[in-house]
Amino acid sequence: MTMNVSMTVNGKAVAAEVEPRTLLVQYLREHLGLTGTHVGCDTSQCGACVVHVDGASVKACTMLAAQAEGATVVTIEGLANGDALHPMQEAFRDNHGLQCGFCTPGMVMSAVDIATRHPNPSEQTVREQLEGNICRCTGYHNIVKAVQAGAKAMGG
């Protein structure tokens, strides 16, 4: 049994026949080839799969594609403006806020959401707000700096 889902992903209207159990992250990775969104766990903790659904950060491993019917989804691939990186992407680069890069897409998507809600976040705020994202490489030190710098660059 399959069902039809349609949504807007990174500004483009997309539609597909999928199994009802298809997760949003599977749909993005396997049907749309948007492999920037990663899967690092199976209990919704690592946050490598964070995307924006209708403007809010969501763990794409915890939402069915069917639940995103009609939604506007932005993934890491949709963040930059052509060759110009998003200010949060720039901030991660400037502050060496990534190493292996695997948690990075989810981190950046969460960070953009954090900056939207907390335009000028303190270190403590950033650390608490990153509760849903695990990084094993960086020790978070530079990620925290990057999120603060990115928030500032976004206009905070």
Binding site: R29, T75, F92, R93, G101, P105
Partner: peptide, 19 residues
């Protein structure tokens, strides 16, 4: 110097085995 590998990781262009 800033890292050469960052752009692909920051834009979803990394290529891991599962990709």
């Amino acid at each position: 110097v800033l890292r050469k590998e960052d752009r692909r990781f920051l834009t979803g262009g990394g290529r891991y085995v599962d990709d």
